[in-house]
Design a protein around this nucleic acid. Structure first.
Lengths: 103, 103
DNA sequence: TCAACATAACGATATATTTGAACATATGGC
DNA sequence: GCCATATGTTCAAATATATCGTTATGTTGA
C-alpha cells in the first residue's frame, strides 16, 4: 500500500489528468469524434453540427486545447483545430504502461 | 467531417466515457495510485491515507467501481477493492486504436 | 445487543456548464 | 481609410452538477 497519498501523482501524469478531465465530458467526446482522419475544422463548422451555442463550443475547444488534445491555428478570420494524434496516443499509452507495471 | 454529432459515440466508447470521468478527478487518481501491484484494500485503509471523510472516500470508490476501474467484494464487515487491470488497459487501448485508425 | 465497517440520505458549498451580450480581430466593399 | 460583416473569444449571470461532511441507516461479527 502506497501511503504517500498527497504526493502520489507521477510527473508523467500531470498532463494526463487534464486529458482525462477533457475527455470525461460527453460534448467534448462528440466534438473529437466529429473530426475525420487528418481533418482540420474551424469553430463554425463544429457549431453547425453541435447542439450548443457558439460560445459553449468555444469553451469546450479551449478545454481540449489546454489539455493538449487539440491544436489550433488562426488563419484569417477562422481558427482551425485538429487532433494532436501523437500526444493523445502517447498520453494514453503512458497510463497503460503504468498500469501494466504497477497494478 | 462526421456530421452525426448526436450519434457519434461508438458502442465501444460507452463504458469508456465513465472511465475518463472517473479518472478525471485528482482524489480518484490518488486512490488508484495507493494500490500496489495485485493489492486489495478496504475502505478504512484508503481513508487512513486520504485527506477525506469516510463517506467521501466511499463516494469516490463507488464512482470508480461503476466505471469498471475497480472491482469489489464484501468479506465480513469489510469491503475490499482492487484495480480491474485488464478492463482498464483494454479500455484505454480501445481509445488508442480508435485514434490511430480514425484520426 | 453492541461495536465496527460501509453506504445512503441530506444539506451546504464549490465547480462546471451554458447562453446572450460585449468585445476583439480580419476581410472586403466602398 | 472607413464601415459593415464574419468569425471567435471573453464576460457575467443563471442553472446544473459534483463534491464533501454530518448524520442516519444497514450489515456483520463478537
Amino acid at each position: 500500500m502506497n501511503k504517500n497519498y498527497m504526493r502520489a501523482i507521477p510527473k508523467a501524469w500531470r498532463n494526463i489528468a487534464k486529458v482525462f478531465t477533457a475527455l470525461g465530458d460527453e460534448h467534448r467526446q462528440r466534438i473529437l469524434l466529429t473530426f475525420e482522419p487528418g481533418e482540420r475544422l474551424n469553430v463554425g463548422q463544429i457549431v453547425e453540427v453541435a447542439t450548443l451555442s457558439r460560445s459553449a463550443v468555444s469553451h469546450h475547444l479551449k478545454i481540449l486545447r489546454e489539455a493538449g488534445v487539440l491544436e489550433s491555428v488562426k488563419e484569417g478570420k477562422a481558427v482551425y483545430f485538429w487532433i494532436a494524434k501523437d500526444f493523445l496516443t502517447d498520453a494514453l499509452q503512458t497510463v497503460i504502461e503504468h498500469v501494466r507495471k504497477n497494478v
